[in-house]
Design a protein around this nucleic acid. Structure first.
Length: 242
DNA sequence: GCGACAG
DNA sequence: ATCTTGTCGC
């Protein structure tokens, strides 16, 4: 499947403004048995180091056991550079290709990035939710916009993330002693429910299992890179043996 | 005009 | 996001 997305900032912004009105901020979700996690990473093309490849990772976990049941890693040429606020236009094409390769359709999707906690209320989690017509949640590791107080120190504590007089998300302490997570509505789930699902998928780490597993897959070193690392640790010297 | 700015 | 080794701490 080929998705030729707009690379024109003005067009992308206009589209975001139109789509934002279609995002559903209330619960519209059925029984959850499969939860997906999405994350994207980048790597240099081994064949042509001057080119950068986008790596879209999607994992599907069974709920509530959080057992991995499926995973897809899709590589595609990177078409657009990173522009704050237009992340989905850079990463979604590859993510959609990955979803197309999935055998099972998840009931809920957690995305590494913002949902409506975005200048035009259409972060990558919301954009993906609309495209797939699935409930989604934005789970970001840092802030794009909005203001907030420091969330309580204990696990599960959270404070509101507000912007222009509107609550656009929550800043959640997913683990003690670590930077909080930025949770926001993606699509078809309210904020309280979104927080509930994220907390329900937390184990012993900072990230909930869906995005943590997707993270591992997206940033996993390639076989060649791992071979290189082994060579380095065995060869404290400089050049690689040929 | 001056900062801020998911990944 | 990615480039990168060791290091401080539970």
């Amino acid at each position: 499947m080929l998705h030729q997305w707009t690379q024109e900032p003005s067009e992308a912004i206009a589209l975001q403004k139109r789509l934002a009105g279609r995002v559903e901020r209330r619960d519209r979700i059925g029984e959850v048995r499969l939860v997906a996690g999405v994350d994207v990473g980048f790597e240099r093309d081994p064949a042509a180091p001057e080119n950068i490849l986008t790596r879209a990772a999607v994992v599907v976990l069974e709920y509530p056991t959080l057992t991995l049941v499926e995973r897809v890693l899709h590589r595609a040429p990177t078409t657009m550079s990173y522009v704050p606020g237009l992340l989905s236009f850079r990463e979604l094409p590859a993510v959609l290709e990955a979803f197309a390769q999935l055998e099972r359709r998840p009931d809920l999707v957690m995305v590494d990035g913002q949902g409506i906690a975005h200048p035009r209320r259409l972060g990558i989690a919301s954009h993906l939710g609309l495209w797939l017509d699935l409930p989604t949640i934005g789970v970001g590791k840092s802030r794009l916009c909005g203001r907030h107080d420091e969330p309580p120190a204990q696990r599960g504590g959270w404070t509101e993330l507000t912007d222009r007089g509107e609550v656009i998300g929550a800043v959640l302490r997913s683990r003690e002693g670590v930077k909080p997570l930025y949770v926001s509505i993606g699509h078809r789930l309210g904020l309280e429910s979104s927080l509930g699902w994220v907390v329900a998928c937390l184990t012993r780490y900072k990230l909930p299992e869906p995005t943590r597993q997707a993270d591992r897959l997206a940033s996993r070193r390639t076989l060649a890179e791992r071979a290189g690392q082994r060579a380095l640790s065995l060869n404290p010297s400089d050049t690689e043996p040929t």
